[in-house]
Simulated assay, not measured.
Amino acid sequence: MPRLTRSAGVTAAVLALSLLATAPASGGEPPVTDPRVVAHFDFAAGQTPENIAVEPDGSADLTFSNARQVANISRTRGTRILATLPAVANPHTPVVGAAIVLGIARAYDGTLYVNYATGTSETGIWRIPRGGGTPRQIAQLPPNGFPNGLALDERRGVLYAADSVLGTVWRVPRSGGTPTAWAVGTALQPVTAPHSDGPPVAGVGANGLKFHRNAVWVSNSATGTLLRIRVRHNGFPAPIQTRATGLYGIDDFAFVERHRDTALVALIGSNQVARVRPDGTHTVVLTRQDGLSNPTSVAVRGRTVYVPSAAYFTRQDPNLLLATVHQRARR
């Protein structure tokens, strides 16, 4: 959920990740422990980490939205720029007005895919070679849209992108080509829910997106909901289900385990991460006191939780936070 900032060149910081093995949790332990900020970024240089993909070695691939860059953060190599999306002369991006890079997805072979929103014909999905290199656009999406969250279904060979303005989940062949409006509906639209108890989020509907257990899961920032869309055998979407409510200002999210629907969600406005159970109830597990500064997304690898904070509204300390998740602390 980006905020317009002044673009500037990126100064790569040499920062280390402390990716430590963790012991199994006992039944009385909280679900997330040991939060620590392991990397700090330069807000003025556009180093606003919007989305994340984790490499097999535990390093993090981050989209620096306002710098239009993708960076790898590693304990051995520091911060390394993998790719820079091309500059756009006159961007007319909805919501923010600037050209920004948003969601990221990683294929098993190391290829990266990112969403680029510009308000021009460059809006769409771009592919970055394994290890970094020149990005190439593989699909155009509507310039009046805002492609945000991104996920890859390796088995079917398709990408899904959440459009925050048009309230659409786009489906695109992994090889590239013409996008299909795969899922639409009021539940995906940027319409503030009536009688909500939290602050409204204007103009941003479908936001984060994950492919999990043969379903496309989408967050809606405006309505504070987490949605599930099962993929039918023929590839078409089943009806949209609302799986959790009251998550006001929800951005992207990640699932704790492959075979369960427990999720950790970033709540950008309240500087929190919440644990959402399969029954839809949720509990705050990380806060600003732990180091969050407008968290935008979450990733989980083993027992390690990764939370990028873009500091869009605080304008203080964009960073990457790690914590430990105890997968057996369930209710």
Rank of each mutant, 00 (worst) to 15 (best):
M1D: 14
M1E: 11
R3T: 14
A8L: 14
A8S: 15
A13L: 12
S18F: 03
L20W: 00
A21P: 02
A23Y: 05
G28V: 07
T33M: 06
P35G: 05
P35I: 07
A44V: 13
G46E: 03
G46L: 01
G46H: 00
E50A: 09
A53L: 02
D57K: 02
S65K: 03
S74Y: 02
G78M: 01
P91W: 04
H92R: 15
V95G: 08
G97M: 09
L102T: 10
L102A: 10
A107C: 11
L112Q: 00
V114D: 03
N115E: 06
Y116Q: 13
T118C: 09
I125A: 03
R130W: 04
L141W: 07
L141Y: 08
N144K: 07
F146I: 03
N148K: 02
G149H: 01
L150W: 08
R155T: 15
L159F: 05
Y160L: 12
G167D: 05
G177V: 13
G177P: 09
T186V: 14
P190K: 01
P194Q: 07
G203A: 08
A206G: 10
A206P: 05
A206Y: 03
A215I: 04
V216A: 09
S219W: 03
N220T: 09
S221C: 11
H233T: 12
Q241I: 11
T242M: 13
A244V: 08
A244T: 09
V256Y: 05
V256N: 01
R258M: 13
A266M: 06
I268V: 15
Q272F: 08
P278A: 11
P278Q: 08
V284I: 15
L286T: 15
G291E: 13
R303I: 01
F313K: 07
L322N: 07
T324Y: 04
H326V: 00
